[in-house]
Amino acid sequence: MIIINKILNVDDYYFDVFMSVSEALTGFSVNELQSTGLAETYYTYILGSMEAATFVEFLTVSKNVFENSFSQDQLKNTIASEIMADPGLNDMAGKVITIWYLGTWEGAYINDLSYKEGLVWNVMHAHPPGAKQPGYKSWNIKPVNSNS
């Protein structure tokens, strides 16, 4: 029970591990993830949506991966062998990726902001329809990947 109360504190070490593994899995920096305004929300949402022991196991394995990796290549290889190769941890990693990119957990949006701040919009160089408009006269600017 102590570990559950400790995890709920976003100033705790486990929150930092969550952010570090999120950075490694999404390819976005911790600062970019924090700028969504959803880091703490996602952390506490995940904890409240599943068995705490499962989340703790994922974070503990992730912590060990970071502690035992001394280069970016080694980190990628260790994530592949320690997290992605394990079916349970792979499933958890997929859920973490999905929550950041789509703002959903098991098919449902976390909140209104999670739709607006999904990383998918940055990757597509787009905006979430109906939520964040591109701005006045934005139709006059060629798309980022335009060949015309």
Rank of each mutant, 00 (worst) to 15 (best):
residue 76 K to P: 00
residue 17 V to P: 01
residue 42 Y to I: 13
residue 10 V to G: 01
residue 111 N to T: 08
residue 100 W to P: 02
residue 76 K to T: 04
residue 84 M to H: 07
residue 11 D to T: 11
residue 100 W to S: 09
residue 125 H to Y: 14
residue 33 L to M: 10
residue 45 Y to M: 13
residue 70 F to M: 04
residue 56 V to C: 00
residue 114 S to E: 05
residue 25 L to G: 09
residue 37 G to A: 11
residue 105 W to D: 02
residue 33 L to D: 05
residue 131 A to Q: 06
residue 3 I to W: 12
residue 10 V to E: 07
residue 20 S to M: 13
residue 108 A to Q: 14
residue 83 I to T: 03
residue 110 I to C: 07
residue 33 L to S: 09
residue 87 P to Y: 10
residue 126 A to T: 03
residue 136 Y to L: 09
residue 100 W to G: 04
residue 29 S to K: 13
residue 124 M to E: 11
residue 78 T to P: 00
residue 100 W to C: 09
residue 14 Y to S: 04
residue 5 N to I: 10
residue 68 N to E: 11
residue 79 I to R: 02
residue 39 A to G: 11
residue 95 K to V: 05
residue 62 S to Y: 03
residue 132 K to I: 08
residue 56 V to I: 15
residue 53 A to Y: 03
residue 74 Q to R: 04
residue 128 P to K: 15
residue 12 D to Q: 04
residue 6 K to H: 12
residue 37 G to H: 12
residue 72 Q to P: 00
residue 95 K to A: 10
residue 27 G to I: 04
residue 91 D to V: 07
residue 16 D to V: 00
residue 123 V to H: 11
residue 78 T to A: 06
residue 17 V to K: 01
residue 90 N to F: 07
residue 45 Y to E: 15
residue 136 Y to T: 06
residue 131 A to Y: 13
residue 42 Y to Q: 09
residue 68 N to W: 02
residue 100 W to T: 02
residue 32 E to G: 06
residue 64 N to Y: 11
residue 3 I to Y: 15
residue 125 H to F: 14
residue 30 V to E: 08
residue 47 L to A: 14
residue 37 G to M: 14
residue 36 T to H: 12
